[in-house]
Design a protein around this nucleic acid. Structure first.
Lengths: 201, 201
DNA sequence: CCCGTCAAGACGGACGACCGTTCTCTAATG
DNA sequence: CATTAGAGAACGGTCGTCCGTCTTGACGGG
């Protein structure tokens, strides 16, 4: 088996699994469901993933990687600009606008997978590790932006950048939750509202 | 069986179930687990709850009711004051401060149950209905506060109150998620940071 | 050029464990 | 004695996983 073939099959299976997970969550989808959705056999799936838990981890990881990717792209764009023209809140809004089409534009709604991944992270150490690492990175970037913004004199010198980074992070995950669970949030209106936070003095 | 006895037993079972759910989530806790935790028998549990799904719903409902209760209390307090002295962000911070001891001060960490309830709401219509109703109410209250604040001239007249209400709601659920999943948020620092979001002009 | 060989990928039924739920029996109460 | 809450074994079904069987396609000897 060539390495290419192995990787292709793995991705095929992961995509089938994600369709199932988005529909029913991790626990309510059986391995049989994934097998059926993938068009393969149980034996075939188990020759690419040693257990259901590994399949879950394999499905969660690329989603969170995409999030850090987008965030880094926005930060890089910002760093390139001559001066920090965006407030930290505007940076968050930009991240939202960029990640939205990736999250809900495809065949699966990744916001639904994200919410089930949060729940799974509470008990599965592997998922938790992925979440801690990724979300830690994302939040750290936001904290850095806040600190820079504060040190440029736009916020009081004693502002707690880390806590404010946590709050801005909340506006990201809060959008994900409301989109997945309540389904009544509009990206543009939400992003616009985010930009009202931490206004320039 | 007296109505008192029935209600006491039901609450006993619900509390045992919540301990299990906070540990492992809904799907990973079996009815046997709840039976063991409650010290009763399977037959007894099933004579108070017709199914596991009802048990889940019975566990989720009082948690969300507590949330709306606290929110209403804060809104009432605010309405009593001679003028709206609190910004909408400060109202959110106050809700956080009041609900925190209820959520994590007892024998179970309700933020963990909340996160698993979100995931369950994606697929269980009964849980979803409870979440939609409660969170809809909470968000509506926040939207009202924003609209009042805007109409008092503290925000531009064309501000989208509903969207800003959604953003403020995100800071609530975002705290819950970060507390449950990452465990590294400090209530006081977070609440203080929330207050910075919408400063008085 | 054709056919026999062989290895590897895929298949899908089988397995034990455990699931949610039910039902009969027991014990204690008033 | 009548009634009923509670106990816990038992049931059919489904779970995750494994493994024996089969298909397929590349390759080399005649």
């Amino acid at each position: 088996m060539t390495a290419d073939h192995l990787e292709n099959r793995r991705q095929e299976i992961v995509r089938a699994a994600l369709r199932c997970f988005a529909r029913e969550g991790f626990h309510a989808t059986s391995v049989r469901d994934v097998v059926r959705e993938s068009g393969l056999s149980a034996g075939a799936v188990y020759s690419y993933f040693p257990s259901k838990a590994e399949l879950v981890a394999g499905a969660v990881e690329p989603i969170l990687e995409a999030l850090t990717g987008v965030l880094d792209a926005v930060v890089v764009d910002t760093d390139r600009s001559p001066e920090p023209g965006r407030t930290p809140a505007e940076a968050v809004a930009e991240v939202l606008r960029r990640i939205y089409p990736l999250a809900v534009g495809g065949e699966v709604d990744y916001t639904r997978v994200a919410v089930t991944a949060w729940a799974e992270g509470l008990r599965d150490p592997a998922v938790r590790a992925i979440a801690e690492q990724t979300y830690g990175t994302v939040r750290g970037r936001l904290t850095d932006r806040v600190a820079t913004w504060r040190d440029a004199g736009h916020l009081a010198a004693d502002v707690d950048a880390e806590a404010l980074g946590q709050v801005l992070f909340s506006t990201l995950v809060g959008f994900v939750l409301q989109h997945a669970l309540l389904g009544d949030v509009d990206l543009d209106r939400y992003a616009t509202a985010v930009c009202l936070l931490l206004p320039r003095p």
